[in-house]
Design a binder for these strands. Structure first.
Lengths: 152, 152
DNA sequence: TTTGAAAAGGTGCTCAA
DNA sequence: TTGAGCACCTTTTCAAA
């Protein structure tokens, strides 16, 4: 467990909103000198609290207007079949997220497609042919709100 | 719908892998001059294909080791109750994502907590008291893999 | 231990040709 | 596209709180 003081949390909160701002700009907001701010950010990276930085793309503008969540139940669940499934599903470009979960379904997949008929193609030719697939449930995404989540 | 050429797609793919690389470094990889690369990136930002850049934080190192997906079915689903629910759920800091979906459940929430007993607190005092909540299903996240998804 | 001031070095952005 | 100029950002040093 890692100890972060109030300033660290303020830095994380600010960077969570805008990851592109520089140490000097951030320091001005927090009344902290530029090197002090920079050192704290560097430390947060080193201890791994800041794991990375990701581009966030507008999938609709890229022509992928349909997002569907699939709940997948495996027919057989040995260690091997989990690994087989994960390896195979990782090769499908339309799958954005693979979540191994505990519950009625074994996996939840976030799948993007150009439209519904494109999704049907992915579902029939890619998903239903995955090794060990049993039940599949689909939920179409209508709208989504992402929030920073708690920090400390 | 926006038209992107091959070079744009290569830029997006490269930036999706490493969002911190500069226009000059990227240009070298693609055999493109630095200003040309920079102009393309700028354009991709302007037309909104690149929506932003997000920090990705290690929630476990921040002390939030438990992630749970909640399927929530509303008891009453008028326009007002959807808005009431969304407004109320947005005020819970532990909720990272609110997804309005079509299917057995009306919403999917991504909730983080320090541990299972902390999650129970959030569930009982925050989630179950939300306006209009009917059935709730919970799935604990075991592991997760995120992928860039298709580009063009 | 962590800060702030100052400065060096490097890099990226911008513009003109 | 190239190259030069300029600005800013990163990184280090050092003294002080």
């Amino acid at each position: 467990m890692i100890e972060l003081d109030t300033t660290d949390r303020l830095i994380l909160r600010a960077l969570a909103q805008n990851a592109t701002q520089s140490a000097s700009a951030l320091g001005r907001k927090l009344n902290l000198s530029q090197p002090a701010t920079w050192r704290r950010i560097k430390r947060l990276r080193e201890i791994g609290v800041i794991a990375g930085q990701k581009l966030d793309l507008d999938k609709e503008k890229l022509g992928f207007g349909v997002t569907v969540f699939l709940g997948v139940k495996l027919a057989t669940k040995g260690r091997v079949s989990l690994e087989d499934f994960e390896r195979a599903v990782s090769a499908i470009p339309e799958v954005q997220t693979v979540e191994h979960i505990l519950g009625l379904y074994d996996y939840r997949l976030r799948v993007v497609a150009r439209d519904i008929s494109d999704f049907e193609r992915v579902l029939r030719r890619r998903i239903m042919t995955l090794p060990g697939v049993g039940d599949v449930e689909a939920n179409v995404l209508l709208s989504e709100e992402r929030r920073p989540g708690p920090i400390g």
